[in-house]
Simulated assay, not measured.
Amino acid sequence: MHGYDEQVSYRIKLSEESSSGLRAELYAICKVTSQLIQGVAGAEPSFREVYTDTGQRQIRFVLNQDSVVLEPGILSYACGALQFEVVQQQQGNFFQRAARSSGGGESAFGTRVTGSGEVWTEPTRKHFVFGTMSPGDSMLIDDRAYYAAQGSLKMSIHTHARVQGVLSGNGLMQPRLDGAGLFVIESPVSVHEVEVLDVQPGHTVTLDGDMMLMYSASMNPRIGPLVRGLRNSARSGEGLVYTLQGPGQVFLTPTAVAVGSLA
Rank of each mutant, 00 (worst) to 15 (best):
R144M: 06
D53L: 10
L230M: 02
T204S: 12
Q90G: 08
V199P: 04
T243C: 11
E25L: 13
G165N: 07
V257P: 00
L240W: 04
V184R: 05
T114S: 13
P254D: 04
G3F: 15
G136K: 01
R97S: 12
E25G: 07
S236A: 07
M211W: 03
T121I: 03
G42W: 01
K13C: 12
G246P: 01
L26Q: 13
G246Q: 04
Y27R: 06
L36D: 15
L252N: 05
C30E: 15
Q88Y: 05
F94A: 11
E16G: 06
E6F: 15
F128A: 06
A78Y: 03
V163D: 05
T111R: 01
Y4E: 08
V191M: 13
E44P: 08
G104K: 07
I223N: 01
R228F: 09
F251Y: 14
D208T: 10
T253L: 10
A24C: 13
T253S: 08
R144D: 09
L26C: 11
T52V: 14
G115Y: 06
V241D: 02
T159P: 00
F183Y: 15
M1T: 15
E6R: 13
E193Y: 07
R112H: 04
R144L: 09
F95C: 05
F47G: 07
W120P: 00
V205Q: 12
R100F: 10
Y27S: 07
Y10G: 01
V113T: 00
E238L: 10
Q200W: 03
Q96T: 08
S67C: 06
Y51A: 04
Q90E: 13
N93I: 05
G202S: 02
Q200L: 10
Y147R: 11
V191P: 00
I59S: 04
S261N: 09
F128H: 06
V40E: 12
F84L: 10
Q56I: 11
A99Y: 07
S116I: 03
G110M: 14
H203G: 04
S76C: 01
F95K: 04
R176Q: 14
G131S: 11
T124L: 12
R60Q: 11
L167V: 07
M212Q: 12
Q35C: 04
E106A: 08
R176E: 13
S116T: 10
L75P: 01
S20F: 11
F61L: 06
S102T: 10
P254T: 09
R222F: 05
T132L: 09
L244V: 13
Q35Y: 04
D53Y: 08
G237Y: 07
M214P: 00
T255E: 06
L244H: 09
E6H: 11
S76Y: 02
N170S: 09
R57P: 02
G248L: 03
Y27K: 06
A180K: 05
T121L: 05
P72S: 08
A145Q: 02
L63M: 02
A24P: 00
A41S: 11
M219I: 13
G202L: 05
L82I: 04
P201L: 03
